[in-house]
């Protein structure tokens, strides 16, 4: 059984490695994941360890990325921050997908009034500038990382709905769906057993491509002070904290900033590669 799973995993990874872009993306993500998992081992200090003697030290062998205004090791904070970035990105996308896919499948399958209502709601949410809407939601439910995640997910699921709905619409008239109805399958079964499995490659692609914007939105909110509260090593919050020292100690803001960019780039490349592999016709 495990051999089987291993073989399956290889089947997935091999095409990713064959594609130039997704290969780069894959290794970047692998690197970030390694940082996240191995944080206690890799990071020389704990992320919250304050050292008032060594404030705003420039990068050196001892402090690879320098220290911040409280003397905390920026490198350690960045490494621990990978955990938060990944966790936040995936959680946001998971919630988005849960809302978006459900609505998309329902709209695509039933059509008619159901479709009209769902599409109207989707368009309404889509029409708001996402960050402004998310800000609104956070002000309503209060600051905090979990609340930021919820807020970002609530404003950005329409991507999933739109693409999944279109995909389902193209599948619903395929003959295998008709055949399923002809053998007496229930609506729920048709959606779960016939439509959903055929949409999953698409969902994976959109998910991979949505993670960067999820990370960016949450970091943006954290940057504005709504997200992670100190001393949580959130990259967005770190960039924000380093801002006043920017002329004197640029390393405090720039290293977490660089990691935000690298991570987003990694997911984008991986997503593009996955799209070529899984769903060449999809253009997000």
């Amino acid at each position: 059984m495990s051999m089987d799973a291993l073989a399956r995993l290889r089947e997935w990874i091999e095409p990713i490695l064959q594609n130039k872009y997704s290969r780069v993306g894959f290794f970047i993500i692998l690197f970030i994941v390694a940082l996240a998992i191995g944080a206690p081992v890799i990071a020389p200090k704990h992320y919250a360890e304050v050292d008032p003697q060594n404030r705003l030290q420039p990068p050196s062998l001892q402090h690879l990325f320098g220290t911040d205004e409280l003397g905390r090791d920026v490198f350690s904070r960045v490494v621990y921050g990978a955990r938060i970035a990944l966790w936040v990105g995936m959680l946001v996308v998971f919630i988005e997908a849960a809302i978006g896919v459900t609505l998309g499948v329902l709209a695509g399958y039933y059509g008619g009034k159901v479709d009209k209502v769902i599409s109207a709601v989707t368009d309404m949410v889509w029409a708001f500038p996402p960050l402004v809407l998310a800000l609104g939601v956070v002000t309503l439910i209060g600051p905090g990382l979990v609340n930021v995640v919820t807020a970002v997910a609530i404003v950005s699921w329409p991507t999933f709905t739109r693409i999944v709905r279109a995909k389902v619409q193209s599948l619903v008239n395929r003959e295998f769906v008709l055949a399923a109805r002809a053998i007496g399958e229930s609506d729920l079964n048709i959606m779960l057993r016939y439509l959903l499995p055929n949409v999953i490659p698409t969902i994976i692609v959109i998910a991979a491509l949505s993670i960067p914007s999820a990370i960016l939105s949450t970091t943006a909110l954290s940057f504005l002070g709504f997200g992670a509260q100190p001393p949580t090593p959130d990259w967005g919050a770190m960039v924000s904290n380093g801002m006043p020292q920017l002329p004197r100690a640029p390393w405090v803001s720039s290293f977490p900033g660089i990691f935000i960019v690298i991570t987003c780039l990694g997911f984008n490349l991986l997503g593009d590669g996955l799209r070529d592999i899984l769903d060449p016709k999809l253009k997000v």
């Binding site: 395929r174 003959e175 295998f176 008709l178 055949a179 399923a180 002809a182 053998i183 057993r193 016939y194 499995p197 055929n198 999953i200």
Partner: peptide, 16 residues
């Protein structure tokens, strides 16, 4: 009652 369609590749669920 049963039904068989024209295009066999479209009438079978590709993921089943």
């Amino acid at each position: 009652m049963g039904i068989v369609f024209q295009d066999p590749s479209a009438s079978l669920n590709p993921r089943m």
